[in-house]
């Protein structure tokens, strides 16, 4: 199995991941991504029925922190905003979003 990515597939994926693809890059993306999908399609040849997926390799379980306030790590408002493009009265500023 191998999928070919159409322009509308690309547009849909780009939208999901909040990227804009330039019009002149569509062909390049389409051919490169299709090549990658073709490359990974060999996975389908491996029988995987009843094989549990692995999401992590540590074997750890139940790792928690206690419910305490970690004062030293809290950032001052100044530090929190230090790298922001635009701020106003202690807030981050973004273009208006419709509620």
């Amino acid at each position: 199995m191998s999928d070919t990515l159409t322009s509308s597939d690309l547009a849909h994926i780009a939208k999901l991941v909040n990227l804009s693809i330039d019009a002149d890059q569509y062909d390049l993306f389409s051919s490169q991504l299709t090549a990658i999908l073709d490359f990974v399609s060999r996975l389908q040849e491996v029988p995987t029925k009843n094989i549990a997926p692995t999401a992590q390799v540590t074997g750890l379980t139940n790792v928690y922190r206690d419910d305490v306030v970690d004062q030293p790590r809290i950032l001052t408002q100044k530090d929190a905003l230090a790298n922001a493009h635009e701020t106003h009265n202690g807030f981050f500023v973004v273009p208006a979003v419709f509620e």
């Binding site: 994926i13 997926p53 692995t54």
Partner: peptide, 26 residues
């Protein structure tokens, strides 16, 4: 990001992400 989004997206998750995670087990 595009490949990863595709592999996780609805309709393709099982064929890509999940299969790969199973093969990771192997």
């Amino acid at each position: 990001m595009m490949i990863g989004t595709y592999a996780l997206s609805s309709g393709y998750y099982d064929a890509y992400y999940k299969t790969a995670a199973q093969i990771r087990t192997l």
